[in-house]
Amino acid sequence: MFPAQITYHRAGSVAEAVQLLSSNEGAKLLAGGHSLLPLMKLRLAAPAVLVDIGRIEALKGVSASGGGITIGALTTHAEIASSDLVKQHAPVLAEAAALVGDPAVRNRGTIGGSVSHADPASDQPTVLTALGATFNVTGQGGDRSIAAGDFATGLLENALEENEVLTSISVPSVPSGAGSAYVKFPHPASRYAVVGAAAVVAVSGGTCSSASVVVGGVETTPARASSVEAALAGSDLGDAALDAAAAAVGGDLNGDPMGDVFASAEYRRAMAAVYVRRALGAAASRAG
C-alpha cells in the first residue's frame, strides 16, 4: 500500500511522452492508473520513472472515421459504454465496457491502459480482437499499426517497443445485418472475466456469411475460435448449428492455459464452450 520512490513526469504531448520513455530506461506510462498503481502499492511493480499521459487531450474521445470509429487511448470505459458512436458502429464494445469492473474502475480506467496491460482476463482485448480492431502506436521510429490479435504477446506482455505509446484504436463498423455479443463469467471478487466470449455473426440470405469469435480468460492471450467460425459459416444459425459450433471451441484452445484457485484450466476450457454458445445465441438473435 506504500509504493517505492518514483520520479514522476507529466507529458504534455505524445511526442514528449515518447521522448521521456526514450530517455528513461524502465519508465512506465501512467494513464488511468487502475492496473499499474495497485501493482506499485503491493511493490510488485517498482518503476523508477512514471510518465503520466493522462492529461493529453489528443488521446481522448471517440470519433467517426472512414468505415468505423477511432477511440483515443485515454477514453474511459464509462465513456465507451455510453458513447452513441460506439453503440452505433460497434455495440458489442459498449456492451463489454459496461461490464468492466465497477463504476469507479469504469470512470477512471482507460481502454488504452486496459489493452496495454495485456491481462487476458480483461474484457476489451477479447472484444477488440473479435471486431478486427487496429491499434495505432507512436514511437521514436514513427507511427505504426498493430492488429488487435497481435497486440498481446503473452501474459501481461504487449507488442509495444520500449519507447512506443498506444495512441488510438481503430474499430471497423460491424456490418449491417450482423449481430454481436459479449458474454462474460465475472470472477465474483475481481469482476475480471474468468471466461469472456465475444461473437460477431453476419447473416446473408438466411445463412451465416461470416463469423468472428474470440475467447478471453482461458489462455494467456485472447484466443480466436477459428474452428467455431468455420463451423458457423454457411450454417442456418439454428440451435443445433450453434451447439455444434460452440462445441468445436475446444480445438481452438491450444495455447498456454490459465487456472487458479477459483477456476482451474479444465473448468475454464469447459466454460469456454458454454459461454461461446451463449454469445453465439445472443449474437445470432441480434443479427438480420
Partner: peptide, 15 residues
C-alpha cells in the same frame, strides 16, 4: 492465495 479483494470474494450487493 486469496491475499486481496481481487481473489477473496466478499458478498456484493449485485449478487
Amino acid at each position: 492465495v486469496t491475499g486481496s479483494m481481487l481473489d477473496y470474494a466478499l458478498p456484493r450487493a449485485d449478487l
